[in-house]
């Protein structure tokens, strides 16, 4: 039994919009990372949902797996950068960090 594709797509649209909203309005670096994760999951949900139309192929699921792998890399590097800037500036508000180089 296949659930109607429309429901997957509506949920995916909601998740993507919420992720975009989080990235724009939250003034905290980790909340912005959470928003990016939501957007990647929305894309994954679309890939898995459309894979149901082609029962003999697994390409959509494979793409979802690679998206998950890239999300892991992005989160690890992003959190490392957040930790480093926090130790340096004592803040995790991205707007407060205006310079990346250490001025002599």
């Amino acid at each position: 039994m296949m659930f109607p594709l429309q429901h997957f797509l509506i949920l995916s649209a909601i998740l993507f919009s919420v992720g975009l909203l989080l990235v724009v309005i939250k003034r905290h670096a980790i909340m912005m990372l959470i928003g990016i994760e939501l957007m990647l999951n929305a894309a994954n949900l679309n890939l898995v949902a459309f894979n149901q139309l082609y029962p003999n192929h697994r390409d959509g699921q494979m793409f979802a797996l690679f998206v998950i792998i890239v999300a892991v890399c992005e989160t690890a590097v992003g959190l490392a950068i957040i930790l480093r800037t926090y130790h340096f500036y004592q803040t995790s508000v991205p707007d407060a960090v205006a310079e990346l180089a250490d001025k002599p």
Binding site: I30, V48, A49, Q52, Q61, L65, A71, T75, I82, L83
Partner: peptide, 27 residues
């Protein structure tokens, strides 16, 4: 429920087990 069992297991292992723990460490 969308017939993607392996993706579901990977989602639980990698996202709920890995990424969220890393985010909590960051917090």
């Amino acid at each position: 429920l969308a017939f993607a069992e392996f993706v579901a297991v990977t989602q639980i292992l990698v996202y709920a087990g890995g990424i969220v723990v890393v985010i909590l460490f960051g917090v």
